[in-house]
Simulated scan of single mutants.
Amino acid sequence: MREHNSLSEAQLEMRSEVELAFGKRNPPRADEIINTEFIEPTRIRNFFNGRAWWDITLEVLWSDYSGGGSACLSFMSPKGRNYYLPLYLLLAVEHYYKGDAVTLDFASRLLMYAKDDHYYKISTLNGEEMKAIAKVLRFLASKYDDKYAQEALDYIWKDYLQ
């Protein structure tokens, strides 16, 4: 579980926003996360299968997943990605520099999902989930001067801040 006492007030606020928007529901079935037999996606499916997004930490991702954790969402089906997206939102907020490619490249991946929505279907998220993403992107752009977070915010998510 995540450590509350090491987070700033702003990080705790972001966590609360993400948890409220995405809620805690059962994880998707393995075949709903990824439906392929290629090696890398199979490793991703096996790692995430049965795990709730809120039970995975950066340390668990690094120690239990044998691949590079930064690309996991990109291989997932829209249902799997939308379910595990709050995990990555919180990792970016809480471990921006420590998370290396998992967190430093996260906003650029969100931008890619938005630009290729016909494939990634990021638009299938509900309004509250989109608002939470927008707030996280604003936080990343402001706190960490993440240019991709600002670009993603400007591209699609700024409309959700009003």
Rank of each mutant, 00 (worst) to 15 (best):
L87G: 01
P78H: 09
F38R: 11
V60T: 14
P78D: 12
N49Y: 09
W53T: 02
G50K: 11
D64N: 11
F38D: 09
N49L: 09
P86K: 09
P78F: 10
S66D: 13
S66W: 11
L73E: 00
R51D: 04
T42W: 05
M76A: 15
M76E: 02
W54N: 09
I39M: 13
G68A: 13
S74L: 15
F47D: 00
D64Y: 11
G67C: 07
K79D: 02
A71W: 07
M76S: 02
W54V: 05
G67K: 10
E40T: 13
W53I: 03
P41I: 06
A52C: 08
E59Q: 14
Y83R: 00
T36S: 15
E37S: 10
R45D: 03
Y83E: 01
L58S: 07
S70V: 05
G69C: 06
F48A: 06
L58R: 01
P78Q: 10
F48Y: 13
G68T: 07
E37P: 00
T42R: 14
F48K: 00
S74G: 10
F38S: 14
S70E: 10
L85G: 01
Y83N: 01
M76F: 10
A71D: 08
G80A: 05
E37R: 13
E59V: 07
T57D: 04
L73W: 09
L58Q: 04
Y65G: 03
P86C: 08
Y84V: 03
D64K: 13
T57W: 06
K79C: 03
K79Q: 11
S66A: 14
R81L: 14
M76Y: 08
S74Q: 14
L85Q: 02
N46P: 00
I39S: 06
L87N: 03
W54M: 07
G80S: 08
D64T: 05
N49K: 13
G69P: 02
R45V: 04
W62R: 12
F38T: 08
P78A: 11
L58H: 02
M76Q: 07
R45W: 06
D55S: 15
L73S: 04
F47H: 03
E59P: 00
Y65V: 03
G50F: 09
M76W: 05
S66V: 10
I44G: 02
P78K: 14
T36I: 06
F48N: 00
L73M: 15
G67M: 10
Y84E: 04
Y65E: 01
F48W: 09
L87E: 01
Y83F: 15
V60N: 05
R51Q: 08
P41V: 13
S66L: 14
Y84G: 02
N46H: 09
R45Y: 07
R51Y: 06
L73K: 05
N49P: 00
P41Y: 12
R51C: 05
P86R: 06
S70Q: 14
N35C: 09
F48C: 05
